[in-house]
Design a protein around this nucleic acid. Structure first.
Length: 960
RNA sequence: GCGAGGGUAGCCAAGCCCGGUCAAAGGCGACAGACUCAAGAUCUGUUCUCGUAGGGGUUCCCCGGUUCAAAUCCGGGCCCUCGCACCA
């Protein structure tokens, strides 16, 4: 039989939403549970990997719903930034990859046309996410509350948030250096290259500019990342073929390349180009080094790139392979020397000077590595590698040597900062920021680092805010626990964060300066609050215009005069009171679940914004992080459009199979590869489950057996365990019990001869609802199939227990299972086909001794007391010998036993009776006669003396 | 570089926080058997290694340490992921 999962899913999701069991309204006095997943950015189709976190959220929410909670699980999307804009642009210019993805997802040409503008993209994908993904997966989400960060009402909320941050003194302004396109303002540089055409791996480097005095009053300005090597200077490099400019900077005249002057103009207040200087005209001149005052000559080098740094370079041949080889080449090149009147003496004077002691290296690492790698020309491609190696070793492990004055003996890393600071304060140096590689904006213009003098920041460096946030984090349920620990550090390291930007972005205008748009993190961290209110805006009960500062103050903070708010907002006092009560009812948020990429940005800011703005009792209760579903090692990339469209996967595998895959494939806290076969096997598992349930409906009779109590006890135990797992939101262990362990229990029950219809029905009524959090559609279908009324989703799960009776029932079957294992082992090893198996239950004195040992204090078993107690009953010399040996044995076993073992060992039941009752079953299993007797039984036949092995819980066996 | 996480049997993956229930859950795969005309599905068993009696040996990346006892704790090493802030 093949189940039509697709039809089953459609049937139930339609029924749920029609009955509106997904909608959440406050029920005063009823426990609430409020959970969200971090909403996705609207940047295109999502892929099957994204559904992992969403599904886990739904499973937890459904579980909570079935354990007596009123749940709130709202969803939304994040459209701020330029994801939608760049998507629209790609559509507009007919980018084949983008169009291909859209077509593969079944878009018509009209639809594609509508995606050529950002609003269309947002509208379209909002529909896709809600309908094709979340509803398709049967989420118990209250769709009335859907919101999107570019909705006008949402914007009002964000404006309010910024006002509150300002009121708390957490908005500050200071200069900022951002990569920017001259045309489009600041751009994001990241590997996915959403803002840019080229250069996604570029970094902003901070060069130190060192000023070298020429005798005519001008400064040659070299850019370096290693200012501490100033002690090893031997000469200066200038490209003789480049035209440099004289630029006026703060009353000084700097010689730099033309591109450098342009860059500086973006970063410093007054940079004016006065004239130009030919590189060749500088050859052979001498200049005075900063800090050391040493006079050094200018030599020619074609390696000075006018586009890197200032286009001028200081030469430290001891530690820079390029500088060393430059000198070597210059020495060889007599033409060049003649052209610029450079004497041999001058070149000789530029001998490398040792300045850094690096373990494992000689005094001149640059010279050393060039020899070792056989580098002798500038054209050698190995030069790059040599530079990296020397720099890495010198910078991280080196120590400034005795020729470095007051810095002698300092580690290079520390010396660098100290020297730089001194030179900056003595205005012998300046700072210039530049990108490590060329970055080109989407528009084709070059991206440069630009000073923004009045950038707004949220002051996450604020010590009080940090302290309160860290303190609160310690009280939260944060999973995995590694992150619970680490979030402390993340908050500690947090600096101020730029919160608005200029340029063409989607987002909310900054209320204090309309030129700015609030950036994408700042508007997506306090938003769980807004889900409480979004419904009122969506239903038109309040208009965006009515959502004033006072409105939010009243509803969220409980501040202000409600009649004033009524007048401002156009909402009646009564409705305002409802909103306020609703906020108080749902808040705080119980769990925010998001992918691991949020650990260093979203979650800490989410927490800090709550702490900064809301009252202490409304701070969030929990954070959960999920790792990724990957595709054969690499992330299933969103930008590649997803390996397979989610609706296609849902059709192919079934939603429930996918849900079970996400839940069971591994811990939430590791990456897992998407694997079609695995998903299919979960689909098989669901079919098997269906078949088993269906069979159970047929096979029951009125007859009850000794197994009935066992199955019910077992289920009770499982229930108790399941709830324990869910206390830690351990969905994986939960699904393992439900889909694998419980079905094993039921099969064992049947195998052992259990057949009671009423017990089986009881079992099904317990089991099927347990599936509802993970595979809700199948669960509903089965529930209906066994004749129950919908919805199982609203059924209350029972609690389960592990009382003595449960334990003793479990122990009885464990005895039989262990015995079967022993017998199998014996038969396997001896490869015999027995005609009869004798089971010999431990003699009563052993049983008494065990219970005496268990009665003694834990970890302190008194062996001699055990022996003394047993000796009076010893009738034979064999027994006299056996008593001390067994006593030692028991003492050891009992004192080593973990809690679980002790409980099982202590279980009270009559082994002989249990085994006698099972002898028929055992005989069937092994295909021979099975005789069960106590060792105490005078009629016991024991030709090989096996009975001495009998222990409580482990009878002796003799096969013949 | 800074920070975080990880390396477990053929594969995936639990266990590690809180040492003894661990030759190590569960799944997948493989093998054998049952059912069946047969295949598939299903069920049962086996799946480090040796063993004609329920036992022994060697394992949880490597080296060392703590302990009566280590996959689990501590130190060192090798290798792999991931995050690093205006992409959310």
């Amino acid at each position: 039989m093949t189940l039509d999962f697709s039809a089953m899913e459609a049937k139930w999701r339609t029924a749920w939403y029609k009955a509106r069991i997904n909608e959440s309204n406050p029920v005063p006095g009823k426990k609430k549970f409020f959970m969200i997943f971090a909403y996705p950015g609207v940047t295109g189709y999502l892929h099957v990997g994204h559904m992992r976190g969403y599904t886990i959220t739904d499973a937890i929410v459904r579980y909570k719903m079935m354990t007596g909670h009123n749940v709130l699980f709202p969803v939304g999307t994040h459209s701020t930034g330029n994801g939608a804009i760049s998507f629209a642009r790609k559509v507009e210019r007919g980018d084949p990859a983008t169009i291909g993805i859209l077509e593969a997802n079944g878009c018509t040409s009209e639809t594609i046309e509508s995606l050529a503008n950002a609003d269309g993209v947002v509208r379209f994908f909002n529909e896709v996410y809600v309908n094709d993904y979340w509803k398709r997966f049967g989420f118990m989400s209250d769709w009335r509350r859907f919101t999107c960060t570019t909705y006008p009402d949402y914007s009002r909320f964000i404006e309010w948030q910024m006002r509150k941050l300002k009121a708390h003194g957490l908005l500050i302004q200071k200069p900022y250096f951002a990569p920017a396109c001259l045309e489009h303002g600041p751009v994001a540089i990241d590997a996915s290259e959403t803002d840019i055409q080229k250069g996604g791996t570029a970094e902003v480097l901070e060069y130190t500019l060192l000023k070298f005095d020429l005798d005519d009053g001008r400064n040659l300005v070299a850019a370096t990342l290693r200012p501490e090597t100033v002690f090893g200077l031997t000469n200066f490099w200038v490209n003789p073929d480049v035209e440099y400019v004289d630029a006026e900077v703060d009353g000084e005249t700097w010689v730099v390349s033309r591109p450098a002057a342009e860059k500086l103009a973006l970063q410093m207040d007054s940079v004016k180009v006065l004239g130009s200087t030919d590189g060749s005209a500088l050859m052979g001149k001498r200049c005075k080094a900063p800090f050391t005052g040493k006079m050094i000559p200018v030599f020619p080098s074609n390696l000075c790139d006018p586009n890197i740094g200032t286009g001028l370079v200081m030469s430290v041949p001891s530690d820079a392979p390029v500088d060393w080889i430059g000198l070597v080449e210059l020495k060889r090149n007599s033409d060049m020397r003649a052209r610029y009147n450079l004497t041999d003496e001058m070149i000789e004077g530029a001998k490398p000077i040792a300045i850094i002691d690096t373990p494992g290296w000689g005094p001149m690492p640059a010279v050393e590595i060039c020899e070792r790698m056989g580098i002798s020309t500038m054209a050698d491609p190995k030069l790059d590698e040599a530079t990296k190696e020397v720099y890495k070793a010198g910078f991280h492990r080196g120590v400034m040597n005795s020729s470095c004055g007051e810095f002698s003996g300092k580690p290079v890393e520390a010396a660098k900062d100290a020297i730089r600071a001194q030179m900056l304060s003595g205005s012998q140096a300046a700072i210039m920021r530049d990108l490590s590689e060329e970055v080109i904006c989407r528009c084709g213009e070059k991206v440069l680092v630009r000073k923004i003098p009045d950038q707004w920041f949220i002051d996450y460096a604020n010590p009080g805010l940090k302290e309160r946030s860290k303190e609160h984090a310690r009280t939260m349920k944060i999973l995995p626990k590694e992150y619970f620990d680490n979030i402390q550090n993340v908050i500690e390291w947090y600096r101020e964060r730029a919160c608005v930007r200029l340029g063409n972005w989607l987002g909310t205008r900054f209320p204090f300066d309309q030129r700015w748009i609030i950036e994408a993190i700042a508007d997506s961290t306090l938003y769980p609050v807004y889900y409480v209110l979004s419904r009122y805006a969506n239903e038109g009960i309040i208009k965006p215009d009515g959502m004033t500062e006072k409105f939010f103050d009243y509803v969220i903070l409980g501040e202000g005069d409600v009649t004033v708010v009524e007048a401002e907002s156009g909402v009646s006092v009564e409705t305002l009171g409802m909103m306020r009560a609703e906020f108080e009812y749902w808040y705080p948020l119980d769990i925010n679940l998001g992918g691991k990429e949020h650990m260093t940005v979203h979650f800490p800011v989410f927490l800090m914004n709550h702490v900064a703005i809301l009252r202490p009792e409304h701070r969030p209760n929990g954070i959960m992080v999920n790792w990724y579903i990957t595709s054969t090692g690499s992330k299933i990339s969103k930008s590649k459009g997803g390996a397979q469209p989610i609706p296609d996967a849902a059709e192919k595998f079934g939603v429930d199979a996918m849900r079970l895959f996400y839940a069971h494939i591994s811990s939430l806290f590791v990456d897992v590869a998407w694997d079609d076969e695995k998903v299919e096997s979960y689909s098989d598992r669901l079919e098997k489950t269906w078949i088993l349930v269906d069979d159970l409906l047929r096979i029951g009779t009125e007859e009850s057996t000794g197994m009935d109590a066992w199955l019910l006890a077992r289920l009770n135990m499982r229930l108790a365990k399941l709830h324990e797992h869910m206390a830690d939101y351990d969905i994986r262990s939960y699904s393992n019990e439900v889909y694998f362990e419980i079905s094993q229990d039921i099969k064992w029950y049947l195998r052992r001869g259990g057949k009671s219809r009423s017990v089986l029905m009881d079992a099904l009524r317990t089991w099927i609802p347990l599936m509802a959090p993970i595979t809700p559609h199948l669960s509903e279908e089965l529930w209906e199939h066994i004749g129950q009324k919908p919805f199982v989703s609203l059924h209350r799960l029972s609690d389960g227990s592990r009382n003595d009776e449960v334990i003793s029932e479990e122990a009885k079957e464990k005895l039989i299972q262990n015995l079967m294992q022993d017998v199998s082992e014996i038969l396997k090893v001896t490869s015999m086909s027995p005609t009869k198996i004798s089971i010999m239950v431990a003699p009563s004195w052993k049983i008494e001794m065990l219970s005496a040992a268990l009665g003694q204090p834990k970890g302190k078993v008194d062996v001699s007391a055990l022996i003394k107690a047993a000796m009076p009953d010893a009738k034979t010399p064999e027994m006299k010998k056996a008593i001390p040996a067994f006593a030692k044995d028991v003492a050891q076993e009992v004192s080593r036993a973990a809690e679980h073992d002790r409980v099982m060992l202590s279980a009270k039941f009559d082994e002989l009776e249990v085994l006698k009752a099972a002898s028929g079953f055992l005989g069937e299993q092994f295909g021979c006669a099975v005789e069960v007797r106590s060792v105490d039984d005078p009629e016991l036949v024991d030709p090989k003396g096996r009975s001495r092995f009998a222990k409580p819980g482990r009878p002796a066996v003799y096969a013949e």
